[in-house]
Amino acid sequence: MHIDIKAASLQQKRQAYKHLAKRFGEDRPASRYEEGTLDLAPETNFHYRPLWDTDHELYDQSRSRITMKDWYALRDPRQFYYANYNITRAGQIESVEHNFDMVEKRGMLSAIPAEWVEEISFYLLPLRHYEWGANMNNCQITALGHGAALTSPTCFAMGDRLGIAQLIGRIGLAIASNNETALNAAKDAWINHPDWQGVRKMVEDSLVIEDPMELFVAQNLAFDGIVYPLVYGVFSRESDRRGGAAISFLCSFMNEWFEETGKWVDAVIKIAAAENDENKALLKSWFTAWESRAVAAFKPLSVAVLGAEAGAQAIADVAATLKARAAKLGIA
């Protein structure tokens, strides 16, 4: 019935919300990413100072030393808004489920040599606590970062890191026939094993970083830029060689995720660095400091898994790749 109205009288009065028309011109319809993200966070006329932070307004650019003329320049190249984010992840998780099913049906885990299962439990399972730290850090940026262009994807990253932590947890359950033993041992290693203490200290130190952009660089570029290529790249290849290909298979989401998420992390840092020289210098100093922490922290693990020489080489290679990546972003 309603579609009978002739087209002439259904002339649109405007193509987009005005804040988007102001950015892109009156005649351009906006994407759902743009509608759901740009200029979304409150900017002015706040009522009360936070009881937990009298020195700042509720939303306050000065929580970071990074300055931006427009915080909405920090766009997400994936153009994630809630719906396409969840739909993307749900699709990926369906593959993960298939992988778990296949590994279970074919008894692939019982085919892994026992000593390598021990090794996997030692290097992989404690990382769920690392992911939990990453979850908290992205949550913190979501709470205190400036502009929805930055804080919406950090919220998605927060969810991702919980998801990855739980995926590692599921691997821990799977290799122990659904007993908690392997996960409990991994937690003990995280708390007590000397090889893990550099990582745990680094993570705990990151939990008290105050500047949301420093936290972004530390967690999402410096830490992840070492952990992911090392563990899900180098260690996985080692796992394949030693009969643990099933584990690499179960971790394929992590590689896929790191590649996708890295594009967003790079975009944010590249734009912030290009904004002004002060930003560039700050980002560089944060990156340098936290990257060297991450390299030092993961070296004992690399050595433990790969041996002294190969372990040192692997961490050096991963660090070199990360530095090259930072150079491309203008902060090396």
Partner: peptide, 26 residues
Amino acid sequence: MSVTAPKKLSLKERYRILTRGLDWTT
């Protein structure tokens, strides 16, 4: 570590292990 027939985890147990176990006291 040998891999035996997996025990059945209830929704509550599975959730507890996968979430509550994540935290540690810094």
